[in-house]
Simulated scan of single mutants.
Amino acid sequence: MIAVLLTASPAVAEQSTADPVRVMPLGDSITQGGSIGGYRLDLGTKLRAAGRSVDFVGSLSDGPSSMPDRNHEGHPGWTIAQVDANVVNWLRTYTPRTILLHIGTNDMYGSDPAGAPRRLSALVDKITAQSPSAEVFVSTIIPIRFADATVRNYNAAIVPLLRAKAAAGKRVHVVDMYPAVPISDLPDGIHPNAAGYSKMAAVWFNALSAVPGSIGDPAPPQPGGPCTATPVVTGTWNGGFQGEVTVANPAASAISGWTVRFTLPGGHVVTQIWNGVASGSVTVTNVSYNGTISPGGSTTFGFIASGSGAPAIGTATCSSP
């Protein structure tokens, strides 16, 4: 169940529509997500698959080396007050268009859990005062095995406070995260496993998708068609790998010329290519002798990429004039 409250629509944050939408994951260790990247891993994947151009921002960088975007403001062990003491500087530095706030877990077993809703309310007021055009998504916190009643009381108290801010015209959206993650997905009773983080990612994605502008607009379909591109890693070594992409024409008529676009999530760069011409990050067009593909036919191009991350090729798209 996801509760998303839409506010009125004042001017949006100052950001060119051509730029990726800056999204700040904000909170404690549940936002940081340990070595697996938390919910940020699957959320980034969902956003890219939906054609959204998003840039996670923050002073920290964590997650697997193959994770394309690792930035965030998830500080392990931090309370609401600690985030409150630093948030203005982060907002000034990174100017996020959208903020994902999951905070309060460490307050639940601190000295004053009853005061946590008031502290959260003050934190959200500080965020909206500093960044009034940002979309601020505030979630209820996920369960804690040994403090479930305290968590439930906190969640019940913050929802009406946040709804009141939205009703007053602030760009605050309530996301009900608590039901999404069962206790069985919390190995230590506090932090989700990969399955739990994936469920969190789905809730965030659905909430973001319901608020126009919070993650930009879907990328327009590539012109032309109907070619397809299928990439594969064909060899690896320390510091690089070799890849091959098959460009196929499933249509009933020939195509003349093709363009393939893909990413290298591990941070690699293409250093050599054959049977194609590479530009940007990464766009490949045909050479003179393999641009025409007959119905049901295919051609291939290959490349060598250098870098220290895990060898990987992102989803490839193909278009033809």
Results as ranks from 00 to 15, higher is better:
M1S: 11
T17R: 15
M24P: 14
L26C: 14
Q32I: 05
G37R: 10
K46N: 00
R48M: 11
R48G: 12
G63F: 08
P68Y: 13
N71M: 02
H72F: 03
G74H: 00
H75Y: 15
P76G: 15
W78T: 13
I80Q: 04
V83H: 11
N89R: 13
R92D: 09
T98M: 00
N106M: 06
D107F: 03
M108V: 09
G110K: 01
A114W: 13
P117Y: 02
S121C: 10
A122T: 14
T128R: 11
Y154V: 04
Y154Q: 02
N155E: 08
K165T: 00
V172T: 00
D176P: 00
M177R: 05
M177T: 05
P182V: 02
V203G: 09
V211P: 07
G216V: 03
D217I: 13
P218F: 07
A219M: 00
P221H: 01
P223W: 05
P226N: 01
T236C: 05
G243E: 06
G243A: 10
A252V: 07
S256Q: 09
V260S: 08
R261L: 15
T263L: 14
T271V: 14
N275W: 02
V277D: 15
G280T: 01
S281G: 13
V282R: 10
T283Q: 11
T283F: 01
N286T: 02
S298L: 01
T299C: 04
T300F: 08
I304L: 11
S306N: 11
S306G: 13
S306M: 11
G314M: 06
G314E: 05
S319H: 13
